[in-house]
Design a protein around this nucleic acid. Structure first.
Length: 112
DNA sequence: AGCCTGACCTAGG
DNA sequence: TCCTAGGCCAGGC
């Protein structure tokens, strides 16, 4: 497993329950501002990580559940988010401005 | 090696 | 405001 993937998974693990962030924000934080698509690929492989990776807390920049079809079941991603208090309507996180969790602002590598 | 695809993002019409 | 095209980085074939 590459360092970059480990970084991505580590950041995703720091997302608090009830919050969400975007692929682009994570890509920027781990040092690949143009690598947002790679973050999506990392999520696709996240099951191979030893530790739990809450991939359902990662959405695109608009707060849409673009990755829901990669979860088992019909609506697991939405159900997981709703269990944490996030309101999701029609694959769209409501009040995403407040839900959004920016690692650049709220996370330091020191705290990891 | 070359081409296609993808859990994205931005710019331009 | 909606839609399209292009760029992006990595992986599969």
């Amino acid at each position: 497993m590459s360092d970059l993937y480990d970084k991505i998974y580590e950041v995703v693990r720091q997302i608090p329950a009830g919050r969400a962030t975007s692929y682009g924000a994570i890509a920027k934080f781990v040092g690949s501002p143009r690598g947002s698509r790679m973050v999506g690929w990392a999520m696709n492989q996240s099951h191979s990580s030893k530790a739990y990776v809450p991939a359902h807390r990662v959405v695109n920049r608009l707060g849409m559940l673009s990755g829901k079809h990669h979860f088992p079941g019909e609506n697991l991603m939405q159900e997981l988010l709703e269990n944490e208090g996030v309101v999701v309507i029609d694959d769209q996180i409501q009040d995403f401005d407040n839900i959004f969790w920016d690692p650049m602002k709220e996370l330091d590598w020191d705290s990891i």
